[in-house]
Amino acid sequence: MATFPAVKKVMSAIDEGRCRRWPWFVTAGGALLMWILASLVSLKWDPEAGFWREVIERRIAGAEGLRERVGDQRMIFVGGGSSCSFSIHADVLTEETGLPAVNLGGSAGMGYRYLIDLATSRARKGDIVILHLEPEILWAAENSLPPLAMKVDLSRGLTGAGRGAFGGEFYKRPVLDRLAALRPGAKFLGTLAAKVVRGGPLYRYRLEDLQENGVLGMVTTEANADREGFQSMKGWLEDEKVKEDLERVAEFGQKQGLKIYYTLPWEVFRPEILEAQRLEHFKALEVMAAFLPIIKDVAMGATAKNEWFLDTGYHMRREPGRARTRVLGQALKQMLEEGP
């Protein structure tokens, strides 16, 4: 190998470099510089974090603006992952219930604690909060803020986090630890490089598709979402920390005088297992009812119509999304009329 002069030259340079180490402050300075650069890449150039940061900023601004307009009138806040972002039309909810409503949905990748906190962060005494959370994210507790939430949170200072049901929980982890976790990571960099080379969009969703009523849409030529097979709910809400978190949310609601409900997002399943899946969801909701009141509807979080969905089995197209919100609004109205 070392017979080639160029290789020889490189090898001798390597050997020379091995003998002469950097002074410690160069290593430390190099680490600090890389940390800053990596954090900047994460905070500024991560298209996913950038997109959701902007979505959440707009949502919070919208919620605060609406609060100013309606004054002390009771409001509805709906929070959850992208199922909420893509399927809940705030204007339809207002039409059905007569109450001003806001969609405070984010992405499931942010974790349930961040999403619940965001959903409850702008609510006042007497308001209604609907948690439209994907069941998957309630399966296991989060030990720390997921990277997406951390990036969104740190890149815009304090968003909704820290004001809602989980208060300062996110900040228990030392600041430096959280900052150190801003690493972009090989997966992100590799994918970004591939997207740049391919020349396609850096993120599949666009801010232009965020509508005034809070719902997200997308232009897609792809086929409808795949239908899921049967999903067992065995073990759901059995994690002790998840239970503690849900108890905490219920307690927060009581203390703040909020009505906090849980409702299952609609997801697409294969027709042959649809009824079995609905029954499974029904049983799971009985478990959830021990913590929070449930807004149930006939679909029980399952439908077989994949033409209603966009790129995933949770992201509803415009009209089906409006229909789903209408069902939710009617069920809520009925519950409110019936009283506790």
Partner: peptide, 14 residues
């Protein structure tokens, strides 16, 4: 060593 430091901050998952 500098490349390894860059690897730690850029490639490690968060």
């Amino acid at each position: 060593q500098l490349a390894l430091i860059a690897g730690v901050f850029f490639l490690a998952p968060a």
